[in-house]
Design a protein around this nucleic acid. Structure first.
Lengths: 209, 209
DNA sequence: CCTGCTCTGTAACAAAAGTAACCGTACAAG
DNA sequence: CTTGTACGGTTACTTTTGTTACAGAGCAGG
């Protein structure tokens, strides 16, 4: 998705698409860049047009947990509400894959809601999606064991990158799951023994499913 | 709150309030009633005008976890989005305190969005609130130990009922925290020894804070 | 006053996850 | 080639939470 015109809700309104491009500022980011920091003020909302971003919740002591990914064509809906209410961000957003992002000033966000019903539909759809993802996360951390969550995460990453080779470190995975590196190493070893994965340096190969 | 006109967003539009009453069906419920079941179809969204409702996420095996409370004047925003997209509910809603609820058909929900900006403001505000509550829940179950979460829950209940005497059973608390009864009993005993609470049958008295 | 029910207290044990410490190995930079 | 650093493997141990099982306490209804 390199063109906002491809977004379902926007197909019926080229005018909206044009306005979006007109009022947004485009920026490019390398993997690892921080788009949005916890407690940062929000002046504009990001719409991802290329690449992928991950949204992370952090605890004061530095521990983190992955909430969800923002894929191309999607926006960070938390920024949206935060911006609307003039609040600071409750999450951190980090670039996972080289990304191109449009930043739309919050005043335009509100304006477009009044003028373009498609824009509101878009926002609602994303809201809905994020809500469900958060519910899934809650179920996972409340009821699932770490090994199952780990395997799920690997599958999700595999699906996102459309490859069964995952480039990451145990430390990374531990952060995203909100646990410690040793735990991940231990469980990965088990998964390898069970034939679920094959381990390498900075690399995990999924050998089933 | 017995009157929708008292809701911040609605003060500027008595017309909207009138319409809400006109198109809604009012029902009354006893504590323990289930307003909305997981996987139920959503034809109308509930607006609580009296009492309190709790929203619960359940796992297939019967385990549950409390998400948040819907207080008087608030609505179940999950139903809203679910209704909009013609989906089934992902959560269960149970009456905590004797409640009076207005049910507004989903088609009216969409209609009002177009006609009354206040209605949209209301929806956005609730969305925002729920989102933050979900984030808090995630932080709690990911990073906090059960004893801390238990104490938090007790304080929350105390604040909601404006009383430091909490009427509940250990079983109840365990369900809301997504853990087992023995665990809660054990931790409550510890809290009692630490002087945080005083225990009785069907009753917990908070003795500090 | 007895009976049956629900609620609570405890013990003993198992499983899962967290923590600390240490070592070897791959890899990049010099 | 050497050296420093990041990464992964492993051990030993603690803490936390889950599980099972059972006994006593309070309470309502007959």
């Amino acid at each position: 998705m390199e063109n906002l015109g491809q977004i379902t809700e926007f197909k019926s309104s080229p005018e909206l698409v044009e306005k979006l491009y007109q009022y947004s500022i485009q920026k490019n980011y390398e993997p690892g860049s921080i788009i949005l920091n916890e407690n940062a003020n929000i002046h504009s909302i990001p719409i991802v047009t290329k690449g992928m971003i991950k949204v992370i919740r952090t605890e004061e002591d530095g521990r983190e947990i992955l909430l969800y990914y923002i894929k191309s064509g999607e926006s960070c809906i938390m920024s949206f509400l935060g911006g609307l209410h003039n609040e600071t961000s409750k999450v951190k957003a980090e670039v996972e894959e080289e990304a191109e992002i449009l930043f739309l000033p919050v005043d335009k966000v509100s304006l477009f809601i009044k003028e373009y019903p498609q824009w509101l539909d878009y926002i609602f759809r994303l809201y809905h999606k994020r809500f469900e993802e958060l519910l899934d996360i809650i179920n996972a951390i409340a009821f699932k064991k770490v090994d199952e969550r780990l395997l799920n995460l690997l599958h999700k990453k595999s699906a996102l990158t459309q490859s069964n080779i995952i480039q990451t470190t145990h430390e990374q995975l531990a952060n995203e799951l909100g646990t410690a590196r040793v735990v991940v190493s231990r469980l990965l070893k088990q998964l390898e023994e069970n034939g679920n994965v094959q381990l390498g340096r900075n690399k995990i190969i999924i050998t089933e499913g």
